[in-house]
């Protein structure tokens, strides 16, 4: 089966005083057209770095390595400099967390988008304008003709994020990456944006990568879920399977510490004890071992766990699970 995006063994390292520090370590995933992948994890888990690597916008000091990042036949790992321009924005587009920072405050909504279109394809001003109206319409931007002349500062946060989405759609990409794209928005606006992204994915056959720290949002987006911890993927599978039947102690811990609309103090939240390890301090063992309640003595400190199957398409990287199954990690 042809695969739109195939990431194999992606690692991202920074040089430190005592050798290289991996902020993303050996992450692999595949994504087909029309599919969505949610990357969930806390700050410092490396989820944003993975997205940046797909667009070639990692910080200069970062070293990206791996077997391959295959994108429709092009190896993104081998892509450099000007060659990125054919991919970035045109084929893979990104929606950032803060739409205020993502938009140029000095130009109108209309010109933000026509500029992007004209940078990527040869077309007349009128054609660019027509496309701008089309994508703003897709993004649910209201009172188009009149409002597209406004500046970003004249719009609410929700509307600015819709402009950012229209900007991402403008060159008809086949993959959209939304990095915490709804985190700063009010809940009702967030729900609108999530519905919009889901609809665009289905209508346009887009592949979608949605990065979030909110497991509730992950469930609303649907598709596949990859849980990241300290630069490592620890569990992956269909979102609902993973949330209904978590198999990694970290996924368990996240679910126990996240309040839901059903939670009450008779069933207290259980925070994960301790703090995430500093990058570079993990060494060869399991990244979660310092906070894990079900550590396997001697083994977790010495080696990384490989993937163990926990169901159809559902995999978990945990020594305890490999030894004792579901009962062991509960």
């Amino acid at each position: 089966m042809p695969c739109a995006l195939n990431v194999e063994n992606l690692s991202i390292r920074f040089s430190g005083r005592d050798g290289d520090i991996a902020v993303v370590d050996d992450v692999s995933f595949r994504l087909e057209a029309g599919e969505s992948l949610v990357i969930a994890g806390e700050s410092g888990s490396g989820k944003s770095m993975v997205c940046q690597a797909l667009l070639g916008i990692v910080p200069k000091a970062a070293k990206v390595s791996g077997t391959r990042i295959d994108w429709n036949g092009r190896d993104l790992l081998a892509t450099t400099g000007e060659a990125w321009r054919a991919v970035r924005g045109a084929e893979i587009a990104m929606i950032f967390q803060d739409p205020t920072a993502a938009l140029n405050p000095l130009i109108t909504v209309e010109h933000q988008i026509t500029d992007a279109i004209r940078a990527h394809r040869k077309c007349t001003k009128d054609e660019a304008r027509a496309r701008t109206i089309e994508v703003l319409g897709m993004a649910g931007f209201p009172e188009l003709e009149h409002r597209m002349k406004s500046y970003p500062s004249e719009l609410s946060g929700g509307l600015r994020q819709r402009v950012a989405i229209a900007l991402a759609l403008s060159c008809a990409p086949s993959l959209i990456i939304a990095d915490e794209a709804t985190t700063n928005l009010d809940v009702s606006i967030q729900a609108q944006i999530v519905t919009l992204l889901r609809r665009l994915k289905d209508q346009l056959g887009l592949a979608l990568i949605f990065v979030t720290h909110d497991l509730g949002l992950a469930a609303e987006i649907g598709g596949k879920l990859m849980v990241m911890y300290a630069g490592h993927a620890v569990e992956q599978g269909p979102v609902l399977d993973v949330l209904a039947d978590p198999c990694h102690p970290y996924t368990h811990g996240l679910l126990r510490s996240a309040p839901t609309l059903k939670s009450s103090r008779t069933n207290p939240l259980q925070p994960i004890p301790g703090q995430a390890p500093k990058p570079g301090s993990i060494g060869k063992g399991s990244p979660f071992r310092s906070r894990c309640p079900v550590v396997v003595g001697g083994v977790c400190a010495a080696t990384r766990a490989g993937w163990t199957s926990a169901g159809e398409d559902h995999q978990v990287a945990c020594h305890r699970f490999a030894l004792d199954g579901r009962e062991g990690v509960r």
Binding site: S188, A191, D214, L215, L217, A219, L243, S263
Partner: peptide, 9 residues
């Protein structure tokens, strides 16, 4: 509007 996995599940 609250995203909630308990409800989705």
């Amino acid at each position: 509007a609250i995203p909630d996995h308990s409800r989705v599940l």
